[in-house]
Write a protein that binds this DNA or RNA. Structure first.
Lengths: 225, 225
DNA sequence: AAATAAATTAAAGTTCATTTAAGGTTATCG
DNA sequence: CGATAACCTTAAATGAACTTTAATTTATTT
């Protein structure tokens, strides 16, 4: 699950990010409305969390612009006080939920889970490409006959690949999304995991394979052999 | 037993929550009708308690919407005064019981207990996975031949696991649902109970086992050996 | 009030995902 | 056709994540 968190109080933002990460969400943080809009429009999130009080553009403005641009991702608003007016306006503009500060972390997590669940009622929670399915619930990779479990990193990489097959994903994108921009690990780690995944895919007689594009990254390809 | 309590008077809500917790219910509290509806629809409670007078949506509206969405969970209404009209309307809309404020805590507990009992007349009160059954009534874990009693925490954890076998449950989800997010206890406590459960399962020659998924949580798996 | 059971904490032991490192392979280009 | 850079693979090392046991605190029962 990918979350975009737009919250200008760095301390709160960091705390939330840490907790979300620990709960296996992958999270991007931005600190003003303009960034929020930018990321919301260009990246592909499962949930967007917008603080209302933010520099540049308020959360409400971001919300409005996102919806006008056809972004349908569930959005949770954080309202500073119990500003009922803001809440109502937010819901009118197409927010899916709101939460007023201060809030209990447990409540935020519950709502995010609920939003995720609501989403997954509509979108299936297995991705299937070729003869291979990837189960988002339990990280299981399977063909018609057999299945095996993927590790955390393996899963995340393959989810990116299978999420948009045919699309080219750069090594940097892997690093950034899975290891975090500031990770100290070397690029080699991506190669290693690609190797692991290929081994597992071929052990399942997959008719898809991961193709390297020199100097750029990787694509998933169906192959008929 | 999981209870959803929808009551906008924070003081009362807190008091009730404390008492229910003390009586071994796990309880979520919400403070307006919209939240109540949201939680009622997305989470899986054994009992829902709805105050009638609430912001956003009245308890009666929530009740109606829940029933229209096919939620069959027993619902107890709290009516502010002795508003006979509301009571009748509530029962018409599918409430299972009502209680008028002010009420004695003992009475509320009794009614909740009764509803729980009534519920378990209809819904099967044993979960069976593999050769192992878990009795929701008396916390008994058994195979064909023998049985043993589980402690409270042990039971709750195993219920979560056996409730959705194959599904991955994160350590944080255990913490949150069983210990409450703000509990001071360490994550280690989950590990300890997993260990206890495994010991008890294997003492019953279970053909199910709890598998750890590193960095995420645990799944229940059937194994054939 | 003692005995029993349950829940928590602490700490030492184990495992396995992740990382590092290093030697091999393949593509591209002058 | 080498030479270089980009990528691949394997295997060992690391350390965080998990497991287990046992001691301690807390609650419940007798």
């Amino acid at each position: 699950m990918r979350i975009l968190l737009a919250e200008d109080e760095k301390e709160l933002s960091n705390a939330l990010a840490a907790i979300f990460k620990h709960n296996n969400y992958s999270i991007d943080t931005v600190f003003d409305g303009a960034e929020a809009l930018d990321y919301g429009l260009t990246e592909n999130y499962d949930i967007i969390i917008l603080d209302i009080m933010m520099p540049k553009l308020s959360g409400l403005e971001v919300l409005e612009k996102l919806r006008k641009n056809g972004i349908q991702v569930p959005i949770l608003m954080l309202t500073a006080k119990s500003e009922v007016g803001d809440r109502i306006q937010g819901l009118d503009l197409g927010a899916d939920d709101y939460l007023s500060k201060p809030f209990a972390m447990g409540e935020l997590l519950a709502r995010v889970r609920a939003m995720g669940r609501r989403k997954s009622e509509f979108t299936p929670n297995v991705i299937k490409v070729g003869n291979i399915s990837l189960n988002k619930e339990n990280y299981e990779l399977s063909n018609e006959h057999a299945s095996l479990r993927l590790g955390n990193k393996e899963y995340q990489m393959l989810e990116m690949l299978m999420g948009n097959p045919k699309r080219l994903i750069s090594t940097e994108q892997f690093m950034e999304r899975i290891w975090g921009y500031d990770a100290e690990s070397e690029i080699n780690v991506v190669w290693v995991y690609i190797s692991y995944l290929r081994k597992k895919l071929s052990s399942l007689d997959a008719d898809i394979k991961i193709r390297a594009v020199r100097g750029v990254g990787y694509t998933l390809e169906e192959c008929n052999d």
